[in-house]
Design a protein around this nucleic acid. Structure first.
Lengths: 243, 243
DNA sequence: AATAAAATAATTGTATACAATAATAAATAC
DNA sequence: GTATTTATTATTGTATACAATTATTTTATT
């Protein structure tokens, strides 16, 4: 496993500004979360408790807590007595995740257009600027993460913490879906659509914004090969059909 | 605390039919989940680890795992070094929860109308029948739970596990909202709206079904007193405004 | 040599001991 | 008698020991 998991998307200190020192497992959770989000940890990777405990220099107690959190987010899969591994979404789940995002982010956009102010627009532009630079410099991990951050920031602007929580879960799940099902040879150019989206939001055109967001999310699905034969099947099922 | 937490909404054995014996904390999680869902555990109730450990005859390790799960569902609130208590949603959260349900359940209904079969329609009718009997016999807890089960079963019919997971979280949150903010003197008669909904779904009228579901959820909000002065405020803030 | 059985090793699951922190009660000062 | 400090108790946080389970290797059998 990559031991350099030190880039973080949302430093815990920012998410929880009121200096309520939260427990150590949150830091580990954040690092693994971010590694999955930025595709440094790929679907299926085994996550051994003892190994993680040594890397982060804590006891298994803490690691188990972090893994349980991640499994509740559906980005880590825990099988009883058989341990944890990075989740490997099925074709069906992949479609569901995109569909869920479409309806939730449509609502978020409607809310965002209503409440966004100039400062927030500038912040979003800055974020997409960063995203563009990273993608152009082929800093793949950071580019992917910043793309996710854009959607998360939009959700936060909407001020609906419940929907934001759902989107916060769906973003790393989308990362796993892309890692697993992306058609080869596609360049990531989501930042251009992000730019467009900001301009439409800034104009206050709710209807167009919703449509563009939906198009943007469908565009993600277009880049995937979600055909049945691409589905991972367990070997028994596979060879039972041999003629 | 009520020690008779033995009625269960969704026995773990049914949720996880493939006899993968899951760990003991899931059973405790389910019991507390159900106690919150059916309003036997009310917002703000302290959940002491040692106390729960004795009730369920397990170590604190297991209790802590169950509590962490519940806190990720936003129905238990864990404060560092200060323990867990049943969550107490704010007015803002209450509104968000209903709003989230409106958009997600609208989508679920659209899907349900497309895919539902006669067997599933009968099962839903049976469920609402039970709900009616329990409400009429003033078996409050069971009535509330069965009402939640109706929405959960609808979500399952839609076959979208991602949206179902979200609804599964929003249902007990709604229970907490109702427990906290319900206007006095309202009879629970959601089962009649549930009956209506089934008939419209059975007719295959997607548009009307979506409208009725939305009306039904708004009806829940109507029964609440979500005015600002009803908001729980900490004492310091309260008395700092005294003239 | 291929298969099955047994032994060993690795990994996860749970309880418990102890440390750290917070809440409460008692003691002291004014 | 009230306020502040100190001591005590209760509760949560973490590491670790050991049990239970699964994975791997070794040995035995054909």
């Amino acid at each position: 496993m990559n031991k350099k998991l030190n880039e973080q998307s949302l430093p815990e200190i920012l998410t929880n500004p009121k200096k309520e020192r939260s427990s150590h497992d949150v830091a580990i959770y954040n690092q693994i979360f971010d590694a999955i989000l930025s595709q440094r940890l790929l679907p299926g990777t085994k996550l051994t408790e003892e190994e993680l405990a040594q890397i982060f220099k804590v006891s298994r107690t803490i690691v188990r807590r972090a893994l349980l959190r991640l499994s509740q987010d559906c980005i880590v899969d825990i099988k009883p007595n058989r341990g944890a591994s990075v989740a490997c979404p099925t074709v069906k789940q992949a479609k569901e995740i995109i569909q869920a995002r479409r309806i939730i982010e449509a609502e978020i956009i409607r809310e965002v257009v209503k409440v966004i102010d100039q400062e927030q627009i500038d912040a979003l532009r800055k974020l997409v600027g960063k995203e563009k630079i990273n993608v152009e410099h082929h800093i793949r991990s950071s580019g992917i993460r910043l793309s996710g951050d854009f959607h998360l920031e939009l959700a936060k602007v909407s001020k609906n913490t419940t929907l934001t929580k759902f989107i916060r879960e769906l973003i790393p799940q989308t990362s796993l879906v892309i890692a697993r099902y992306e058609k080869p040879g596609y360049a990531n150019c989501s930042h251009s659509e992000h730019y467009e989206l900001i301009e439409i939001i800034a104009r206050g055109d709710a209807h167009s914004a919703v449509l563009l967001m939906d198009k943007h999310l469908l565009h993600i699905e277009d880049k995937l090969d979600l055909s049945e034969y691409n589905q991972l099947v367990d070997l028994k099922t596979l060879f039972s059909a041999v003629g």
